[in-house]
Design a protein around this nucleic acid. Structure first.
Lengths: 234, 234
DNA sequence: TTTGCGAAAATCGTATACGGAATCTGTGAC
DNA sequence: GTCACAGATTCCGTATACGATTTTCGCAAA
């Protein structure tokens, strides 16, 4: 049995808890953690070869950041209410136009290329009718421009509701009718960013958010209709 | 020697870490923790009669919330960078006008009365020239209207940068020239809220934030002048 | 087949212990 | 008196252990 083996932080290097937290956040960003996956400290500890404490630190931190929710049985993606989703659309309309405007002024060539790659992937996925792929590409596109936001506080504020946005996207992506809208919206945004046109970028994202809200409401309505139909037939 | 004595959380009751965190936050809010006080987990653990773990939890959480900063020798009040402060002013201009507009539409009589009480206190403090008291009243005023924001996500986004705002206020309050501006700004906002005038409320807060930024920049300039003068005389 | 209930498992919060790094302090040399 | 350096101190991160609570599961009864 070994006791307290592993502090060693050779200089400014992050703690284990930090490392785990960053890795988990990456998985969340890439949508690798599903709506009913349960994250448990012991399992993470085993995976990363450390004790429960750093794993717990990482989980609690992610909870605090709003990316996860603590339950009596592990940590999960937060359950978002309809009301909260509408609130977040409101917040997005406040923050994201300004954010992309700043991005338009500050973005550099490699980041633009990365966005373009995402677009290519998205168009390809649409042609194939591959929802999964389109979702991933669109996710990468979004993370790409958010990463380029030069105002760190604003960027952070946007990232806080990332998982909620993800959950909503998951819902709206189900209906293929939305796929070309998404590709078109991203294309328009990309073009504005490439032209360094801050005004156009802000306009496009604002329209995109409104479009997203409309698609979300439609999806919810479809869901409800579906439920009531099922209930009737039963 | 006792081992693991005290889980017992009879239902929804907060954990020890949460209790300690709340108490520390209260002390921070009341300004009971100075710029070079060092908070140490073992000391807190002893004070609250628990082990280091809940105390550490509380400290780390406060660090994450931006209220404290971890150093190699305890936890202290954070040093906020100039750049970060400017970023937050930008963020405030995006969020707070909308927030007070929503408040104007939703605020109820008791909350309005509370805001009025704060204003009375603030005016009183200004007459006495009591900066401390004015600071507290102005803080309560701000917390009062933020509490009334009906969009919970927006409210949370605003609360995230509360301590940074507090630090900046601390700086600008030093110059008495700003005192009447603060009282006037709050009065104007209160009046707009009382009249349920969302547009006026948004305008007032926007002006107030700009005014705050100007005062902050002036305070920084004064500080710099002061330093260079001291350096010259030495 | 469904329901009720007790035992088992899972998981959290917390306690205590240890190693290492940063900081402080005391002592001797110049 | 000042400086350098080694030992002591402080404090953090992490490991491991334990009790309590909640959830799950199996099994028997209706």
């Amino acid at each position: 049995m070994k006791l307290a083996v592993a502090p060693e932080q050779p200089a400014g290097s992050p703690s284990q808890g930090q490392i785990i937290r960053d890795e988990l956040l990456g998985r969340l960003r890439r949508g690798e953690i599903g709506i009913d996956d349960r994250l448990v400290d012991t399992a993470l500890a085993a995976e990363f070869g450390v004790s429960r404490m750093p794993a717990r630190d990482a989980l609690k931190r992610l909870v605090h950041e709003g990316y996860l929710e603590a339950t009596t049985r592990g940590f999960m993606l937060p359950r978002v209410t309809h009301r909260e989703i509408l609130e977040i659309f409101d917040l997005r309309r406040l923050l994201e136009p300004r954010a992309v405007a700043l991005v338009a002024q500050a973005i550099e060539a490699p980041q633009l290329r990365e966005l373009e790659n995402c677009l290519t992937d998205a168009r390809h996925a649409t042609r194939l009718g591959n929802t999964e792929l389109l979702f991933k590409a669109s996710e990468r596109f979004r993370n790409g421009w958010i990463d380029a936001v030069p105002n760190a506080s604003l960027k952070q504020a946007i990232q806080r509701y990332m998982t909620q946005v993800q959950a909503v996207r998951m819902l709206t992506f189900r209906d293929p009718v939305n796929h070309p809208l998404i590709v078109d919206g991203n294309s328009a945004l990309h073009e504005a960013l490439a032209n360094r046109d801050a005004v156009a970028a802000a306009d496009h994202i604002l329209r995109f958010v409104y479009e997203g809200e409309r698609a979300y409401l439609a999806a919810v309505k479809a869901e409800l209709d579906n439920i009531s139909r099922t209930a009737k037939s039963a």
